[in-house]
C-alpha cells in the first residue's frame, strides 16, 4: 500500500495531491454527517466533542512522540499560541455539534464552511503583513454572504 502511494507520489505528484484533497474533503464531509447522527442519537455535543478531540489527541501524540525531545525546546510563545488555537477550535467544534443537534446537515454544513473567509478577514486585520485581500477574495466574500443569506431564508420555508 505504502509502495503504491510512494510510486504515485513520485510519478504524478500533482494528480496524487488532488486525489488526496478529494479524499480529505470526503473525510471532512462524512465526519459532519456522522457527527449529526451521533449528537442526535448517542450523546450531547460537548461530550461528543470531548471524546472526539481526545481520540485525535491520542493518535497524534503517538505519531509525534519521536519528535518530543526536539519539540520540548519550542519557544513558550509558540505553545501559548497553540493553546489559544486549541481554545478557539474546540469552541468551534462544540458550536458545530450544537448546530447539528438543532438543524439538518444540509443547512449546517454549508454555513459552517465559511471559515476561510473568516480566517482571511482576521488575518487581514491582525496580520496585515502576512495576508492581503484581492478582488477575487472580495467576490468570494460576497458569494459566501449571499449563500448564507439564501440558506437562512430557505431554512424558514
Amino acid at each position: 500500500m505504502t509502495n503504491v502511494l510512494n510510486k504515485a507520489i513520485n510519478e504524478k505528484p500533482v494528480t496524487t495531491g488532488m486525489l488526496l484533497a478529494l479524499m480529505a474533503a470526503t473525510a471532512y464531509g462524512s465526519s459532519q454527517f456522522l457527527a449529526k447522527q451521533i449528537v442526535t442519537e448517542i450523546a450531547p455535543p460537548s461530550v461528543v466533542a470531548t471524546v472526539g478531540l481526545f481520540s485525535g489527541f491520542v493518535v497524534l501524540m503517538g505519531l509525534s512522540i519521536g519528535n518530543l525531545p526536539k519539540d520540548r525546546k519550542a519557544p513558550k510563545k509558540a505553545v501559548v499560541f497553540l493553546i489559544l488555537s486549541g481554545i478557539a477550535s474546540s469552541a468551534g467544534v462544540t458550536f458545530l455539534y450544537t448546530a447539528l443537534e438543532l438543524a439538518p446537515v444540509v443547512i449546517v454544513a454549508p454555513v459552517s464552511s465559511v471559515t476561510p473567509l473568516i480566517s482571511l478577514s482576521l488575518a487581514h486585520i491582525f496580520l496585515p503583513k502576512m495576508e492581503s485581500i484581492t478582488a477575487k477574495t472580495w467576490v468570494g466574500a460576497i458569494l459566501v454572504v449571499a449563500g448564507v443569506s439564501l440558506i437562512t431564508i430557505g431554512s424558514h420555508i
Partner: peptide, 20 residues
C-alpha cells in the same frame, strides 16, 4: 443553528490565526 454554525466558523477562523 445557523448562528451556532457561524460561531463554529468564527472559532476555527480564529484558531487558524493562532496556528499560523
Amino acid at each position: 443553528a445557523i448562528i451556532f454554525a457561524l460561531l463554529a466558523a468564527l472559532g476555527w477562523g480564529t484558531s487558524a490565526i493562532f496556528v499560523r
